[in-house]
Each structure stands twice: as C-alpha cells, then as structure tokens.
C-alpha cells in the first residue's frame, strides 16, 4: 500500500498552539499542540469524551479556543466565524449527519458551491461541478432524491460531497465510518484516499481502528482533552501508553 504521495516540502496547512477549551470547570480540550501537513491524512483518535469533536469544533470555529491559537496556512484563524473558515478552505462533516434532509441531493451539493467558494461562479458551472461531485462520491443516480430518503452510508457520502463543493484544502471528517457495514466502510476508505489524491488534506476522527490504521499516515491520540501520543499508525499501535488508555481489547478486534 503506498504510504502517501511523494511531497517535496512539508507545508504546515494547520497548526494549533496550546489549544484549550473549558466547558464550565471541565477541560474538554487542554493545551493541545498539533499540526497537519499539506496532503496528509491525519487520524484523530481517543476514547469517548476525549475531546476529539470539540477539537474539530474549535478548528471549524463552532467554538473559540480559550486560550490557544489555531493557524490555517500560517494565518491566525482564531475568532473567525464558521462561514469565514469555510470560505478560507476548511470544510467539515458531522458526527451526526447534518444534511438538508428536505432538499434533493443535488441541491445539498449546490448549496456548498454557492456559498463555500468565492462569488463569481455561474450557475451553470455550479450545476456541473455539483454533478461531478455526486459522480465522485457515487450518488449520481440519486441526485433528485430528497436527502432524507438516503441510507446512512449515502447520507454520509452526500455530506462529504457537500463539503467538497466548498472547494476545501482541508477536510475534517468526523466519524465517517460509524454505523457503516463492512462493504460501505471499504468504499468510504476508498473515498477518503481518492479525496487525498485530489490534493485535499484530511483530518479524520475515527473509532474504527482498521480504517484509521490503513488510511492514515499519522495519528494523534487524545485522552481527557490532552494529547497523549502522536505518530505513525505502527508507532501508535505499539505505544504502551495508548494501548493502556485506549486501544485495550479493541486492538485485537480492530486489526
């Protein structure tokens, strides 16, 4: 299996310094430093309540870190609004799928192109791009179907297509594999790799070890809001600390 596309220089697309978020007295994310290089697929793992989704919310500006700084392509994006982050080139999906259920599939994707990119695209361009994206994720046949009638796997694909429509450079995938069967999971892993091959950097939260181990080039492990480990899948799988706090019995089940 090819381990990443060859890259000349490692450009840091995303950086976090001392990122912290308290909910009341509880530190959901505590003093986390992280970075993501351009073109990488980075996995974000950790037990339930480790702060993974909170970290995603901080990156995508649903929440504001306090204290801490998040930089995208070297620019400080702390305190910006979600729509600004999106237009700068950070797209995301949600743990619980958040598609526009009463709209047709195509419309969901078109909305992403309409607002996620800079103005100036003609509606013909947008329609063509939306059709291409549906083709890319394999939903072409359902473009007129109301989104609520899709299966969970297809809804997740739609959410990915909608995120891609905003032309991101960085894509945050929150538990793309959760709730999928083995076949769907294989397709989803394939999809993730194809997105990376388009030149889009990916950070993914995942509980399915098999997926994370085979797709990611680097893994960050959170526990109780703190970063406890970081490294290649092999390093993580062999890290005593990680196995202790997180993998446990899942290690044999997953790999």
């Amino acid at each position: 299996m090819p381990r990443g596309v060859p890259r000349e220089i490692n450009v840091r697309i995303l950086e976090g310094e001392g990122v912290t978020k308290y909910f009341g007295g509880l530190a959901a994310v505590s003093n986390v430093d992280f970075h993501v290089d351009e073109g990488e697929i980075v996995g974000l793992i950790g037990p339930n309540g480790a702060g993974k989704t909170t970290l995603f919310n901080l990156i995508s500006a649903s929440l504001v870190p306090k204290p801490g700084v998040i930089k995208f392509k070297g620019e400080n994006i702390t305190g910006k609004k979600p729509y600004q982050i999106c237009r700068m080139g950070v797209a995301r999906t949600f743990q619980m799928v958040k598609i526009f259920t009463n709209m047709p599939v195509l419309e969901n994707v078109r909305l992403g192109s309409f607002f996620g990119t800079l103005p100036g695209m003609s509606s013909a361009d947008i329609a063509r791009e939306a059709a291409e994206l549906l083709e890319f994720v394999g939903l072409s046949a359902m473009s007129a179907t109301p989104a609520k009638d899709l299966t969970l796997a297809n809804q997740k694909r739609l959410e990915v297509a909608r995120a891609l429509a905003t032309r991101p450079e960085l894509l945050l995938l929150d538990e793309l594999m959760a709730g999928l069967n083995a076949t769907e999971m294989a397709q989803a892993m394939e999809l993730v790799k194809r997105i990376r091959d388009k030149g889009i950097t990916i950070v993914m939260i995942e509980h399915v070890m098999k997926a994370i181990m085979s797709v990611c080039e680097r893994i960050i492990v959170l526990h109780h809001g703190e970063k406890i480990a970081e490294g290649t899948p092999r390093e993580i799988a062999n890290s005593k600390k990680v196995v202790e706090v997180y993998l446990g019995e899942q290690a044999d089940a997953g790999s």
Binding site: C86, N102, F115
Partner: peptide, 10 residues
C-alpha cells in the same frame, strides 16, 4: 433545515 451545517458550508 440545519443552521449549523449552513454556517459550515460558508
């Protein structure tokens, strides 16, 4: 339909 998702698609 979904305000949060709307914000995150720009």
């Amino acid at each position: 339909e979904n305000e949060e998702a709307a914000a995150h698609i720009g």
